[in-house]
Every structure is written in structure tokens, then in C-alpha cells.
Design a protein around this nucleic acid. Structure first.
Lengths: 261, 261
DNA sequence: ATCTTTTATTGATCTACATCAAATTTAAAC
DNA sequence: GTTTAAATTTGATGTAGATCAATAAAAGAT
């Protein structure tokens, strides 16, 4: 099985300038925009919000998963002090179960939230690891809580945000679990990440895969060998093309057909 | 392979009097108890709450899944007017995807909520079908919303409720997805439902399985033949015993060991 | 009660994926 | 640049679970 494009070298088209997501396309928006209860408006950045905090790969406190180091934004079971929105880059979310076995439970792209599902609970449900040099917006929970008691509008927005978020999470995981075969699963996954990535990149057919094969395989519950074979097969079948880290969906229709089995 | 207890007949120990869950053990509690903002308390039942609405098997509007009829409490995609807590009995939740393929996406036991994950969104995410003669408590969303604007206490409770709920949902689905083998999956499932059922029954080792094999298999993403074989194997290995619909976990430790693989 | 229909169990076979192993490519270190 | 290590791809083989098919047991109907 010979894949079409293999000879291309020097295709690590490193984007020097990371693209930050627009606030308009961010899930945090509901609680990040200036809130004016009638005439008295609250300056959010003076209260609970810090924009564009860099999370670079250097200082990694611990290795959350066997391989691939990366900056850990927060760790599972630690007290929840803040929730985050991804500004640029990709994060992976890892969860350790009772028996100490770790799994990749999700990925987050620009404009998506992290930690919000444990808001007002004691601790983070999972660890968040930056895949590369990323940035986030940070919302301090205590300050947010204090503010929301002043502004009922904010509280209403918060409920909406949590509901929508929980809904989308459910949709995303629904799209993954219970697929008939690994083909379908992978097709669904590729469509899912490209669609989510498009919210800020604007391109639904291309994505720069900062996620390693190992992490993808772990998330999808298959072996990396299987994933590798499937990617080769998809390339052979002209469903996708892979140039280094650049993934292009060549036939979204066929992929959708495959995914819905 | 001969299962230990097969000869027992007439073991359909029908519980004439369905056990209703205590309000203390119900997830709806946060918004169902009388709320007193200082001295002016709101009478909930006069506003948005109706307790113990019967949902009997008779009048089924449509067959949500290929087999097993049952009263449909609400249907996917219909406007969300109310959220529910199970009082007695078991419900199954079905979801149809874009391609029209239906799946069982969950079950609800007494004290658990339904529809709450779409609160303040347009429509229900799934259909809810009663497995037998059940009952629910109903909370009307419009009235709840109106009330919550009067009582900030209620709104705070609502946020807590939604967060906890979303967390538990995630935990439940995490316990299921990505298991190595069907054995582990089934072990995890049996432990999960017994544990959830124990919240109102008080017995963590026994449960009356109102759910059909087909529905369980569909939920777990396996064929009913496979499920049947596994149940037989579990009985042979003295992990469980099955008397009609009565399931008993004989060795919770072994099951847990199996589930965490 | 008997008859019919549905639901559940067991058997035989076949395939998708895991597993073990080796080669190859890519990235990091020097 | 070269060397080393890590990540990815490809190959060979075995097994878990799907699929097809046939009973067997409940549940309803009469």
C-alpha cells in the first residue's frame, strides 16, 4: 500500500504567529463581555478575568501520560481555582481512574473551555496538558462567584453557558462512542476535530495535527498500530491527505457516510 | 456451561407497591425544597412543581426503539417545557442521530433527572421511555425560570444542580467508554447500575432488571448474543446470580477488579 | 389450559482488531 | 553536519466478538 504523497520534505510549515481565536467565537463569551446592569458596568479584567496567559512547553511539573511532555495547566484532583478558555493551540485532557490507569478523555481547541464542568465543585476532573506553546484566558472562580451575586444577569449567562457546554460535550462524546468499527470511529473523530477547529480557523477541511498518534489512539480506545493502518488506508482511499502534521479532508461526504454507521 | 440456578420457577416476585424514592435522595432536591428568602417563602407546588405524575405503559405515542414499547415521557427534538426526576421505576433514554440511527444513550433510576441537560435550550436531546409503570416529578421550566428571577438562592442552587449533574453524567459515561473488553464493560455497567439503584433501594448488591437484554446490549454497543454469553459466563464464574429479573452481585470485589482494566 | 409471539440463550463460523516484532521515518541531542 | 532516541508505519499471527442460525424459555393472547 503506497500512499500518494510521501516524498514531500521540509513541509513543517511552522506557523510563527499563533492564531488567537476571536472572542466572538469563544465559549467563554457569555461571562467575558462587559456586563452593564443598567448603568453600573463591571470591569471584568479588574475582577476575575486575565486574557492571553501563555502556557509554554518548557516548565512541565509532571508527566501526565506515559509519553509526550508538555506544560500542565492544571492537574486532576487539585482544588479548582479557575476555569480556562483556549486562546491558541491545542490541549489534551487526561484522566486517571481509581486503579491509576490514565486515559485521554478529550482535546480542546481555541474557543473551547476547560475545567468548567467542575465549576463550584471541589476539584478538577482531569489534567490539562498543552500540546505546544499555547495560551489561555483565565477566569478566577471565587471572584466570578462574588461578581455573579451582584449581577443577576451574569448568573443567568453562567447557567446558559454551563448548559450549552454540557450539551456540546455530550454531543462530542456521543459522536465517538458506540461506533461499529474503527473506520467509523476515526472518520467521526476527524470530522469532529476539523469542525471544531474550523470555528476559529475558518477551514473545515484542514487542520494542523499537534496531537500525537499515540494520544489519538488512546482517546479513541484503539492501538496506535491500528490507527496508523487506518490513516494509511484513508489516504489510499483518497479520503484524507497527510503532509507532515497537515491533515486535509479530501472527501467530507464519504467520511460522513462512514462516520454514520 | 450450566448456570447454577435455573430450576427456580415462579420467581417473578412482583412488587405490588412500587417504592418511591425519598426526596432526600433525589437530585432535584436543590430546587424542590421550600425556599425561604428570609421570611417570604415560595410555595413550589403552586408554581412549577408537580409531584408523582404516573407514567404508565398503556398509552405509547410511538415506538422509539425497534422493540419494547413503553410510555414515552418526552421525545427528542420536541420543545423542552419541563424537566423530570424519576420517582419510581426505570427509564431508558434514546437518541436518534443525523442518519436516523437510534441508540440507547442511558438509563435513569429513582432520584435521577431527565431533560435537565437541555435546560434553557430549545429542545430535548433524547427521548425518555418508561420501562414499566413509573412515576416522575415534573418541574415546568418557564415557571422555574420566573421563580428563579425572584429568588437568587434558587438560581444558585440551580447552577450547583446543573454542575453536579453534568459531572455525574460524565463520570457515568467515563465508566463505560474505552473499556478493554466486553467483560470489563459489562462488569462496569452492572456495578454502575447497582450503585445508582442503591441510592434509593439501599441495597448495592441486588437490582430488579426492568431493562431488556436488547436495551443493555444496545447501550453497551455489543450484540445481545454477546451479552447473553457474558451473563452466562459471569454466572458460571460465581460473579453474579440471575433469578428471573432479580440480579445479585455475588462478588463486588472481583467485578471491580474486572471493571478497572 | 393451549397456541402464538416475543425475548433470551447456545452453537458454529468468520472477520476486525490486538498483539508481538521489525523496519522506517522523524525529531532531538551532540 | 552525525548520532541517538522517539515516534510512526508495516508485517505476521492469534483471539475476541460479530454474524448467521437454531433452540429454548418467557410473556401474551385466546
Amino acid at each position: 500500500m503506497t500512499s500518494s504523497n510521501k516524498s514531500t520534505k521540509k513541509n513543517t510549515a511552522q506557523q510563527k504567529h499563533p492564531r488567537y481565536v476571536d472572542c466572538d467565537n469563544c465559549s467563554m463569551q457569555a461571562i467575558c463581555q462587559p456586563i452593564g446592569s443598567d448603568n453600573q458596568s463591571i470591569d471584568l479584567t479588574k475582577n476575575y478575568l486575565t486574557r492571553r496567559v501563555e502556557v509554554s512547553t518548557e516548565q512541565s511539573s509532571s508527566q501526565p501520560l506515559n509519553q509526550s511532555t508538555g506544560a500542565t495547566l492544571f492537574e486532576q484532583a487539585r482544588p479548582l481555582t479557575a476555569i480556562f478558555a483556549v486562546c491558541s493551540g491545542t490541549f489534551k485532557l487526561c484522566q486517571r481512574n481509581d486503579e491509576g490507569i490514565e486515559r485521554v478523555v478529550g482535546f480542546r481547541f481555541p474557543g473551547e473551555l476547560m475545567g468548567e464542568d467542575a465549576l463550584f465543585l471541589e476539584a478538577y476532573n482531569y489534567s490539562a496538558v498543552a500540546l505546544g506553546d499555547n495560551s489561555v484566558c483565565e477566569v478566577l472562580v471565587d471572584s466570578l462567584s462574588a461578581c455573579s451575586q451582584l449581577a443577576p444577569e451574569l448568573q443567568q449567562n453562567l447557567i446558559q453557558l454551563l448548559t450549552k457546554q454540557s450539551y456540546e460535550q455530550q454531543q462530542n462524546s456521543q459522536a465517538i462512542i458506540g461506533k461499529k468499527s474503527a473506520d467509523c470511529l476515526l472518520a467521526a473523530f476527524l470530522l469532529n476535530i476539523c469542525q471544531r477547529n474550523a470555528k476559529h480557523s475558518g477551514n473545515e477541511t484542514e487542520i494542523e495535527l499537534t496531537i500525537s498518534r499515540q494520544d489519538i489512539a488512546c482517546f479513541l480506545g484503539m492501538r496506535r498500530e491500528t490507527l496508523s493502518r487506518l490513516l494509511s488506508k484513508f489516504q489510499y482511499e483518497q479520503l484524507i491527505s497527510l503532509n507532515g502534521r497537515q491533515l486535509t479532508l479530501l472527501s467530507i461526504n464519504h467520511l460522513k457516510q462512514l462516520a454514520n454507521q
